[in-house]
Design a protein around this nucleic acid. Structure first.
Lengths: 150, 150
DNA sequence: GTGCGTGCAAAATCTTTGCATACGC
DNA sequence: GCGTATGCAAAGATTTTGCACGCAC
């Protein structure tokens, strides 16, 4: 009976990436990334929420470490920092299957949906190159009203 | 010799809009909006920067009032709150000539350029309507590297 | 064993709020 | 004059930092 590898898929890159810089894989760092992975790519969490959820599941991590870890994981490319002003900064798992995805936010209830669009990616790239910029990534934030709030 | 009306163009809507809600046009509110108007539509300011610039020009306004005024002007539609994580929230003049414009930010030096794109607007609207959302506004944030940083 | 990472608490930021006074209407 | 807006200072919220200890390597 083969052991599932789905959960170790991202495990190795984390450890390897850390060791490249002389950094260490600590249980705290592992737990933070695990939390995002267990939720999947659609979830947006604030530092406070990450802390709360980890404490709930009996993982002892201090809030200061959460902040340090989130910044680290963003710099390493495992997480993205969102710019939605949902009240404080929020983070989501960086999913390399869909590198440039966009957010639809209901301005009344805050419900958030994600979508992708090659057309938007191309339009962003075109605008960037027109003035000599090299595109890194782009996200469209669409403020809208969801069906139940209309 | 005719008196220029360019600076009163937006002056009346502010006063009228305030009076509609039983609010008042105070020198402080006028000065905050004037500051944004004098810079034009391409400038992004934080609350702290607005305060600093007004104090520099000998206008006495407290920081608390800046915060209250910025929120008010956003709610009234005179300013937009930006979601660029340039470090703290930032605001820009809402220019109705270009309601949905986008931002190119150099990830290395922070240089910011603006652009418009009907294509992006349409793609955002399409994505919204596909799941029953009604588009309010959309902005694409493009993270890129500018020519001098490449 | 070395030195990076953590927890804790304090500090630094950023933003909001309560209340007495000032002033637009 | 009525009631909103302001200034001030204090409180709240969020994020960062210093330092001694612990643990990954």
């Amino acid at each position: 009976m083969p052991i599932s590898r789905s959960f170790t898929r991202l495990g190795l890159p984390l450890e390897a990436g850390l060791h490249e810089d002389g950094r260490r894989l600590t249980p705290q760092r592992r737990r933070v990334l695990d939390l995002f992975e267990s939720h999947g790519s659609g979830i947006h969490l604030s530092a406070e929420e990450v802390h709360h959820q980890l404490v709930q599941s009996n993982s002892k991590v201090s809030l200061a470490t959460i902040y340090r870890t989130l910044r680290l994981l963003v710099k390493m490319g495992f997480l993205h920092e969102l710019e939605l002003s949902e009240g404080g900064h929020r983070f989501e798992l960086a999913c390399h299957d869909q590198p440039d995805h966009h957010h639809l936010v209901c301005v009344r209830c805050g419900r958030t949906e994600e979508f992708e669009s090659d057309q938007i990616l191309q339009a962003g790239r075109f605008a960037a190159e027109k003035i000599g910029f090299k595109l890194v990534e782009s996200t469209l934030n669409v403020r809208a009203i969801c069906p139940s709030c209309q």
